[in-house]
Simulated assay, not measured.
Amino acid sequence: MRLEREIRHSLQEAFAPVRLAVINESHLHAGHSGDDGSGESHWRVEIEAPAFADMSRIARHRAVHAALGPGIMNRIHALSLDIR
């Protein structure tokens, strides 16, 4: 899974997380809106990093989106985030 590696690499580089899980949930949305048939349209990320300690919830989400950048964000339909 190429996109999983790209997501993982981007987040590791940006935040040096102590815990990172990148979970492809596309199979749960097969045939639904946003399913582009790639098998890489819906993702869940669980990340824990000291860098998030002083950030609000919104700032954390924005930081993750910025770290992934448009090259990744434009290729996925849905991104669920659990940030600690």
Rank of each mutant, 00 (worst) to 15 (best):
D54C: 05
H27V: 12
G69W: 07
E40N: 00
A63W: 05
V22W: 05
H27D: 13
E25T: 00
R44C: 04
G34T: 06
I7Y: 09
A78Y: 13
H29I: 03
S33R: 10
S10E: 10
A78T: 11
D36H: 06
D36Q: 06
H29L: 01
A49C: 10
G37A: 04
I7W: 09
N24A: 09
E4K: 15
A67G: 11
R19Q: 13
G39H: 02
G31S: 07
W43S: 05
L3T: 08
I76H: 04
R19H: 15
R5Q: 14
E40M: 01
A63D: 00
E4F: 08
L68N: 09
H32N: 10
A16S: 15
V22Q: 08
A21Q: 12
A49V: 11
S38T: 15
A78S: 15
R75Q: 11
G34A: 08
D35P: 03
I47L: 15
D82C: 13
N24L: 08
R75C: 00
D54F: 05
E48F: 06
E40Q: 08
A14Q: 14
L11W: 08
R44L: 08
E4C: 10
E40I: 02
E25L: 09
E6G: 01
I76T: 06
D36T: 06
A66P: 02
G39C: 01
R8Q: 15
L28Q: 12
E25C: 02
D54K: 10
I58H: 08
A30G: 03
P70A: 05
R75L: 02
I23W: 00
D36C: 08
D54E: 13
G71K: 11
I23T: 14
E6C: 04
A53Y: 03
D82W: 04
E13L: 14
V45A: 00
H27I: 10
D82S: 15
A63N: 03
R84T: 06
H27R: 13
H61N: 13
A21K: 14
A66D: 14
A63E: 05
H29F: 03
H65G: 03
R2I: 04
S80H: 08
G71C: 11
I7L: 12
R62W: 01
L20H: 10
P50H: 12
A59Y: 09
G31M: 03
H32V: 05
S10K: 14
V22F: 07
S56D: 04
L28H: 05
V64H: 01
I47E: 03
E25S: 03
F52A: 10
F15W: 05
A63F: 04
R5H: 13
H32E: 15
G34V: 04
L28F: 03
N24D: 15
D82G: 15
G69L: 09
M73S: 09
E4N: 13
A63C: 04
L3W: 01
H77L: 09
S56K: 05
S38H: 02
E4Y: 10
R75P: 03
V45F: 02
A67Y: 14
F15Y: 06
A49K: 04
N74S: 14
I23R: 09
R62A: 03
A51V: 07
M73T: 14
L20S: 11
E48D: 14
S10M: 07
R84C: 06
L68Q: 10
R60H: 07
R44N: 06
